[in-house]
């Protein structure tokens, strides 16, 4: 081993993180030495790839194939061999509507309610969130005291789990909660937030903006910092007003970054589930039931597990995501894999 490499690895082992990282591979040393003797050096990269590919294959690629099978079979049995082939029946059931713009005329009215809720939510949430993210990023990009601290302030809720986010707001919004307390304090009348369909939809949007805004603010901020400074210097020479600078320089140059943010946020928004499920359970009624919750309830939570219908609904969701992902690829100019693509459709890895 070369001197420098030896020094580097010694250094790594000296710090606790390095030590924690190396004990596991050290244990595998004899096995891997044997494997190299058997396979030869040339095949070693495949050995390195095996665990990852095995897991991707088992838990991502195989399920995609099975999902199609489920979508075209019926019955309530989990095992594919026990499921009768029903062709397009699941799809037909989902799309059986007299009037597509009126969910109550559909056979699966909850599905359509969920589709409309999801679309409405995605548009409103993403629209408002992008506006707030841009404003916040603009403020954070100024010469302010303690910029790191303020950046952290807006980012903090991003780290909270969806369940915690939901509980925090449920505690605030409950009828004897602090929000109603404050309202009484200023002389307004308290409201039953959690049982009013319209208010709940409003709060679901607000809470999800609260929870995710910090992440998008960071991306917009990175975009703002990439705008060349001399443009602003030139604007100052011309004593352009801040409003003019914003409209003529900042926003146009931010546009590509903003489009990525919008598509990323849309991909996340159509998959909304956790925090809403804990906060409202989809209610009141079906006011805040979204697509993923429909899939979860049809496939797992209801008494009869309709896996086929859930899988068919998954395909509908996948279709929406595919369109959004293609849009994203088009925006980021396809082929080349850029950093922002790493976010992809997944959200969580």
């Amino acid at each position: 081993m070369s001197h420098r490499a030896q020094k580097d690895s010694d250094q790594a082992r000296a710090n606790p993180l390095g030590q924690a990282l190396t004990w596991l591979p050290r244990l595998l040393e004899p096995v891997m030495r044997f494997a190299q003797r058997v396979l030869g050096t040339r095949r070693m990269p495949w050995l390195f790839l095996t665990p990852n590919l095995l897991i991707f294959g088992t838990f991502t690629f195989l399920p995609i194939v099975i999902n199609f099978y489920y979508a075209f079979t019926g019955g309530v049995k989990l095992f594919p061999s026990e499921r009768p082939f029903t062709g397009m029946e699941n799809m037909v059931t989902l799309f059986d509507c007299r009037d597509y713009f009126n969910p109550s005329t559909c056979r699966k009215d909850i599905f359509w309610q969920a589709v409309f809720n999801t679309a409405k939510f995605a548009v409103l949430q993403v629209g408002l969130m992008v506006v707030f993210s841009v404003i916040t990023a603009l403020v954070l990009n100024k010469k302010i005291i303690g910029r790191g601290f303020w950046r952290g302030v807006f980012f903090y809720p991003v780290l909270l789990s969806p369940v915690v986010v939901a509980l925090i707001w449920k505690w605030i919004l409950q009828s004897q909660g602090v929000l109603n307390g404050l309202l009484i304090g200023v002389g307004a009348s308290p409201t039953e937030w959690l049982t009013s369909a319209n208010w709940m939809f409003f709060w679901v949007i607000l809470v999800s903006i609260w929870a995710h805004m910090g992440f998008y603010t960071l991306i917009v901020l990175a975009g703002l910092q990439a705008i060349p400074k001399d443009l602003y210097d030139a604007a100052q020479m011309d004593s352009a007003s801040p409003w003019r600078v914003l409209r003529r320089i900042t926003l146009p140059l931010l546009m590509p970054n903003l489009l990525v943010v919008i598509v990323l946020a849309l991909i996340r928004a159509v998959q909304i589930f956790d925090e809403v499920f804990v906060l409202t359970g989809g209610g009141p009624g079906t006011a805040t039931t979204f697509l993923v919750q429909f899939i979860y309830q049809t496939g797992f939570a209801s008494e009869i597990h309709l896996y086929g219908l859930a899988a068919a609904a998954s395909l509908v969701l996948a279709g929406a995501l595919l369109v959004l992902t293609l849009l994203q690829l088009k925006i980021t100019r396809g082929g080349e894999i850029r950093n922002s693509d790493a976010e992809g459709g997944a959200g969580h890895a």
Binding site: R42, P45, W46, L49, N52, L53, F56, T58, F59, T60, F61, L62, P63, I64, V65, I66, N67, Y69, Y70, L78, F79, P80, I267, Q271, F273, V292, I295, Y296, G299, F300, Y307, A310, A311, S314, L315, L317, A318, L321, L322, T325, I337, D341, A342, E343, G344, G345, A346, G347, H348
Partner: peptide
């Protein structure tokens, strides 16, 4: 090595498949 690029693209492609759309088959697996 041969197939390197394919493997990399395959792994990146899984980014496009969120866990929410393969819930049912993953449950079976």
């Amino acid at each position: 090595f041969k197939g390197q690029k394919t493997v990399f693209l395959l792994i990146i492609a899984t980014l496009m498949i969120p866990p929410t759309i393969i819930l049912v088959p993953n449950f079976l697996v």
